[in-house]
Design a protein around this nucleic acid. Structure first.
Length: 256
DNA sequence: ATGGTAGATACTCTA
């Protein structure tokens, strides 16, 4: 079973790239972030023609997450239980083939110690509480998405450039580490050792051309699911296309 | 200290 995560930066504008990518990569489950698509406009039929059922929660212009699956999707939860209609649409969870999948678009934070930054830190506390309250660390649990946090030195193209900066600051990494402490393994790092690969390159300042990237898109797994993992790769091919998303997919394969 | 680009929206915000 193959599970992928991809921040598409607008699903509707990316459909012409998503369709051939899924035809080639053939993920059984594809978790999307930044769909920027209200539920009424979600391309359910087009995705069904590609072989996927969809569960989604979106809003106008910003945010939005979805789980696409070739297998039945059950026990869907959209956003946290203490969210309301005005809350940004950043989380969707569901069970597919016995795996509890939690797909997150973790807040960007904008700038250190702004309101949006403290919202990010608080959101990560709530994410940890979600696992404490509603998930069993002894089961197959997968947390994935655009985390907007690079966890280690190897995950940024330049440590001096990023030290203390948004996406790599200590408070963000500590908040993310607290989530990890629930029982997660960073699957890409676990299976690939100390390689340096990135999943996001800023559109600006020639970041892609200079490989000035960050690894901020992640697949984290609970112990029983880690034991069933076979591979975890970052597929850079969509980032080479004209008008790409600034993120590229991360794909994991399991013996399930 | 600032700007560089992209997307959605409607002349600005978010990333």
């Amino acid at each position: 079973m193959k599970i992928a995560t991809w921040n598409v930066n607008s699903l509707n504008i990316r459909m012409p790239q998503l369709a051939p990518w899924v035809a080639e990569a053939q993920p059984d489950v594809l978790c999307l972030q930044e769909t920027k698509c209200v539920d009424e406009n979600f391309p359910v039929d087009a995705l069904r023609e590609l072989g996927y059922e969809s569960e989604f929660i979106g809003q106008k212009s910003y945010n939005g997450v979805a789980i696409l699956s070739k297998f039945p999707i059950i026990d869907v939860q959209k956003n946290f239980l203490d969210d309301n209609d005005e809350s940004p649409k950043r989380m969707i969870s569901a069970t597919v083939n016995g795996i509890k999948i939690v797909n997150t678009y973790i807040p960007n934070g904008t700038d250190l110690w702004t309101d949006k930054f403290t919202f990010k830190l608080d959101w990560l506390l709530r994410l940890r509480r979600y696992f404490d309250d509603l998930c069993d660390a002894g089961r197959d649990v997968l947390l994935c998405g655009d985390f907007n946090v690079a966890m280690e030195d190897l995950d940024v193209w330049s440590v001096p450039r990023w030290t203390g900066k948004l996406h790599f600051s200590m408070p963000e990494r500590a908040a993310m580490f607290n989530v990890k402490q629930w029982g997660f393994t960073d699957l890409f790092r676990h299976l690939n050792g100390n390689v340096q690969e990135f999943s996001w390159w800023d559109y600006r300042a020639g970041a892609w051309q200079n490989n000035h990237g960050l690894r901020i898109d992640h697949i984290w797994t609970s112990p029983s699911l880690t034991a069933k993992s076979k591979s975890c790769v970052i597929d850079k091919t969509p980032r080479f296309l004209e008008k790409p998303s600034d993120h590229t997919p991360v794909v994991a394969e399991f013996e399930i």
